[in-house]
Nucleic acid binder design. Structure first.
Length: 562
RNA sequence: UGGGACGUAGCCAAGUGGUUAAGGCACGGGGUUUUGAUCCCCGCAUGCGUAGGUUCGAAUCCUACCGUCCCAGCCA
């Protein structure tokens, strides 16, 4: 075939970061090397927004034969927990990426301390005795310049000694701070003598009680990048104001490397929230079960929901990277999930809300096994045999007493094809005392099954079914959007939790699935034909099957029918 | 007159002075189909926040204005 056959159906997406890196490589900058890093703080689970950064950092390095480090930004022991390191590594691997080196900002505490001393020695930093509240006052406001701290002109020898005493634990938490000496009148507040080190007697997850002073992000991050020889330090827009400080620090210490910080906009999704703090709130208030609740936009959540990692990667790639703030419709993500699953999910039949039908002309104790392809367009998926018997279940929504003209499914007197089997006709409707339809009596046409002369006969509709005798009971969990409004944070007057969708989880306990699913194990996925994509939940067992709906199939009929 | 950024279709987004402004999602129409799925065709901005200006020629350059976002943690 020609090359054209292998090209994606859309033009290759380019973006300013890809272009920038391509130009740097072409110009021989950094010897043509590309080294990136993904720098999470171990203070919570990663979410779909972090996945954008992960995909960007790893794919940029991959594309240019470079490498990516995973670096934990663990400079604040008060907020970080040991368990998150493992979870984060797990999530990154699940997304399909492997880091070149595993690092921690805490690996560099000793070096960071040395560079801080260097700044002090060259009179570029000083130890300040002002209490936190005073520092805030001296900082000024957005529109008024700040004022110099009385300690600003402290001789560097004295600051050096004070800094060492800070490190040795001679001061209480908050009593002293190390500050860069830059410009208290700067329009950029980050440049108004930012704090570089603070005293914190907290047990660090990795360094224990070795240190009682910890570097701030602004100091630790750029230096860590430089130590690792990062070439392109990709981060989100809110750090744009920090770039002058990033550059200032690296320009004022003797480190032979100056990575380029490049900012891009976060990727937001509608009908959810993406912030560790708010996600934590949802858990603590009991609105969701945990970080890995399938409704959560966490990596752990979407993983349990059944979103394939390839779909997440494709999603972010297709969305692109830019500097404009955006909210992407959840449907775009779901579409990427469907695209992927359509290719990879074997098909099966399952009835979510059963309605019993009896094939009155089918022998009472007989079982016929019909062949069914596991994928309609991919013979390599193979096939399985599905048992069909006199009593079957079909979907309640596939029958209507007073059907509109365009309803192609089963109705009194109407015909419909049973998927993978024959055509049936509805002869009699059985209702209970309240008028509810509880059973259908139908007749089948044995001549219309695949292989028989009448197989080609066309009827308007095809519905799925499961043998009442052979079907397996299952619990099916349907998930819907977490919030009722596209942007739960838009209304500043209301708490975002007021806008939760009370029906985000629906548990169907009477579902019945075809027997070939009996062996399914947690993580196995398939398409329930005509219904959606499903994954076996971790709560599932051979005794009690549990499926999560990953995403429903596109449903044009639902749109027409309202 | 605090600083930094961003405004291209309903939602993303390419494009950085030169024929008819990529692509995806959404939407509308048609075809195939034993999933109302998938797949395939077709349509979808005389317009690039607004107003001026420069130029033979502007989404791209200049000026002014409007709108949105971020920053006053010893958080990251």
């Amino acid at each position: 075939m020609t090359d054209a056959a292998h090209k994606p159906d859309h033009a290759p997406v380019t973006h300013f970061i890809r272009n920038r890196i391509r130009d740097d490589v072409a110009a021989g900058k950094n010897d043509g090397q590309v080294i990136t890093r993904f720098p999470p703080e171990p203070n919570g689970y990663l979410h779909i927004g972090h996945a954008k950064s992960i995909c960007l950092n790893f794919s940029m390095a991959q594309e240019f034969n470079g490498q990516t480090n995973l670096r934990f930004d663990d400079t604040n022991p008060l907020k970080e927990e040991a368990l998150f390191y493992e979870r984060i590594m797990d999530d990154v691997r699940w997304l399909g990426f492997e880091w070149a080196e595993l690092r921690h900002a805490s690996d560099y505490f000793e070096q960071l301390y040395g560079f801080a001393r260097e700044l002090i020695a060259s009179d570029k930093a000083y130890v300040d005795s002002l209490p936190a509240e005073q520092i805030r006052e001296y900082r000024g406001t957005l529109t008024e310049p700040g004022r110099n701290s009385p300690d600003r002109d402290r001789p560097s020898a004295e600051s050096l000694e004070l800094f060492e005493r800070m490190k040795n634990g001679e001061f209480a938490d908050g009593e002293r701070v190390l500050r860069a000496k830059i410009d208290m009148r700067s329009g950029n507040i980050n440049m108004r003598d930012p704090v570089l080190y603070r005293i914190r007697r907290a047990h660090h997850q990795r360094t224990g009680d070795e240190w009682c002073i910890y570097p701030m992000y602004d100091f630790a991050h750029c230096v860590s990048d430089a130590i690792e020889g990062i070439t392109h330090s990709l981060c989100t827009l809110e750090f744009e104001d920090h770039r002058p400080l990033y550059d200032w620090i690296l320009d004022n210490i003797s480190i032979g490397c100056h990575p380029q910080q490049i900012e891009f906009s976060r990727g937001n999704l509608d009908f959810t929230v993406l912030s560790k703090r708010r996600l934590r709130q949802l858990i603590e208030a009991g609105h969701v079960a945990d970080w890995d609740d399938p409704r959560m936009p966490t990596i752990a959540g979407i993983r349990r929901r059944g979103y394939p990692p390839a779909a997440v990667r494709e999603f972010w790639e297709s969305v692109g990277v830019s500097k404009s703030e955006s909210i992407i419709p959840m449907s775009v993500l779901e579409n990427a999930v469907r695209n992927e699953l359509n290719e990879t999910a074997p098909r099966a039949m399952a009835v979510l809300n059963p309605l019993k039908i009896i094939l009155t002309n089918f022998p009472p104790d007989d079982t016929q096994w019909v062949g069914a392809a596991r994928h309609p367009q991919k013979p390599e998926f193979g096939s399985r045999k599905v048992p069909i018997t006199r009593e079957l279940y079909i979907e309640q929504s596939d029958f209507m007493l007073d059907a509109p003209k365009k309803f192609f499914r089963l109705k009194p007197g109407g015909e419909v094809r049973l998927r993978n089997a024959f055509i049936i006709q509805c002869n009699e409707v059985i209702e209970d005392a309240t008028g509810r339809v509880i059973e259908l009596h139908c007749s089948y046409d044995p001549d219309t099954i695949s292989g028989q002369p009448g197989a080609g006969r066309k009827v308007k509709g095809t519905i799925h079914w499961v043998s009442a005798e052979h079907g397996l009971p299952a619990e099916v969990r349907l998930y819907d959007r977490l919030f009722n409004v596209a942007n739960p944070l838009a209304d500043k007057q209301r708490e975002f939790t007021d806008m939760l969708n009370a029906e985000s989880l629906e548990v169907l306990s009477d579902a019945v699935v075809e027997p070939s699913l009996g062996e399914a194990e947690p993580g196995d996925f398939c398409q329930f034909e005509r219904t959606g994509y499903f994954v076996v939940d971790q709560d599932s067992s051979p005794e009690k099957l549990v499926f999560n709906r990953t995403v429903a199939l596109r449903d044009t009929w639902a749109k027409v029918a309202g």
